[in-house]
Design a binder for these strands. Structure first.
Lengths: 176, 176
DNA sequence: CCGGGCATGTAATCTGTTACATGATTGA
DNA sequence: TCAATCATGTAACAGATTACATGCCCGG
C-alpha cells in the first residue's frame, strides 16, 4: 500500500487538492502513517500524466490557484486492483525491540529507565488516540472505525508487552 | 537504531566478517528486522574509515580472503552512546491496517478473505518463531530471550486483534 | 559435475523525508 | 500587525533493497 493507492483511495470518496489530501490524511491516518507534501505533490503530477486522475485548476482571484484532482475510471481500476494484492506480513520493527536486544550493555538503572520511558510514550500515544476518537467518529465509516479500534488495541497490547519486560527487569534486580 | 549501531552491537560480542554478521543477524534478528549485504559491506567500510572498527585481512590459500572486523574503543563509545539516544515510538505501520481502512471498497467476501489470509500469515509467523526457540536459546542472552518473548507476544496480540476484526465482519454479514 | 555454502562487493533503483522557496488571505 | 491557514512545488538527502558480478571449496 503505497502513496499512490492511498491518494486514490481518498479520491474515491471525493475530489480534492493535494493540500486537502494531506489534511484528510492527518486526521484519519495520523496514528499509523504520515505523508508529506514532498511525496503527495509529485505523486499527483505523475498520476495525472498516467491518466489515473484529472486535474482542474481553480483560479480564485489573487489567491493561489487550487488544483483539484478527480479520480478517473483507470484510477478506480488501479485502486481496486491494489486492494487485491496479497498482503505481506511485516516484521515488528520496533526501536524498543532493537534496544532490548542489546540491554546487556546497559546498567540495571538504564534498562529500567529505557523501558519505563518507552512505556510512557506508548501510553501517551494511546491517550492521544483515545482523545481523537470523536474526530474520527465524525469522518470514519464502519471499517475506518474498526481501523481505529485496531490501533487502540495495538497500543494497549504493546503497553502490556512492555510491562511484562519491566516485570522481568524488576525480578532480576529488585532493589532500587 | 540504524545499521551501524546494530553491527557495532554484534561486534561488541566478538570480531566477525560481514558475511558472519549477516548470518548472526538472520538467526537472532530475523523476526523483527533484516539486513542485506548491500547495506552491511558499505557500512563496514565506512566504519573502518571512521575508526569505529579495524579490519584484518585473513588470506586463506586460494579461497576468498576474509575481512575480519574488530570494534575499536571509539566504536564501543559510539555504540554505548547510541543506546542512550531516546527512543521514538513508531506508528503501527501495518499493511493490514491500510487495507482495512479501505475495506468499504471490497465485497463482504473479499473482506473476509483478506482478513482471513492475514490472520493465517500472522499465525504462520508465530509458529515459525516458536520453532526457532531452541536455536535462539542457544545463542541468546537474558535480554535477547526477553526480546524473543516480546516478539511472540506481539504476534499473539496481533492475531487476537485480527480475530476481533473478523468477528466484526461476521456480525455484519453472518451468511456465507 | 553440480549445488550449496563461503566470501566480497557495486550500481541501479526505490521510496520517501526534510528543508527550502514563495506568496496571498483572514481573523485576532 | 502578526500568526495561522491556505496553497504549491523543488532539491537535496537518506536509507535502504534488488539485482548484478565474481569466484573458490567441498560433499554427494
Amino acid at each position: 500500500m503505497n502513496v499512490q493507492s492511498v491518494l486514490l483511495g481518498f479520491l474515491m470518496r471525493r475530489s480534492m487538492t493535494g493540500y486537502e489530501l494531506k489534511k484528510f490524511f492527518s486526521i484519519s491516518f495520523s496514528f499509523f502513517s504520515g505523508l508529506s507534501y514532498g511525496s503527495i505533490y509529485p505523486a499527483l503530477s505523475r498520476m495525472a500524466k498516467e491518466g489515473l486522475v484529472t486535474m482542474r485548476l481553480e483560479r480564485q482571484g489573487s489567491a493561489p490557484s487550487r488544483k483539484v484532482y478527480t479520480i478517473t475510471h483507470a484510477g478506480r481500476d488501479a485502486f481496486l486492483d491494489s486492494l487485491k494484492v496479497p498482503l505481506t506480513l511485516e516484521s515488528p520493527k520496533s526501536t524498543f525491540l532493537m534496544r532490548l536486544f542489546f540491554f546487556a550493555d546497559l546498567s540495571p538503572q538504564e534498562r529500567k529507565a529505557c523501558a519505563g520511558k518507552y512505556l510512557e510514550s506508548v501510553r501517551a500515544a494511546q491517550g492521544a488516540l483515545e482523545e481523537a476518537r470523536p474526530q474520527v467518529q465524525m469522518v470514519a465509516d464502519r471499517y475506518q472505525l474498526l481501523c481505529f479500534q485496531f490501533g487502540l488495541r495495538f497500543f494497549q497490547d504493546l503497553a502490556r508487552n512492555v510491562e511484562g519486560v519491566m516485570r522481568a527487569l524488576e525480578e532480576e534486580d529488585p532493589k532500587s
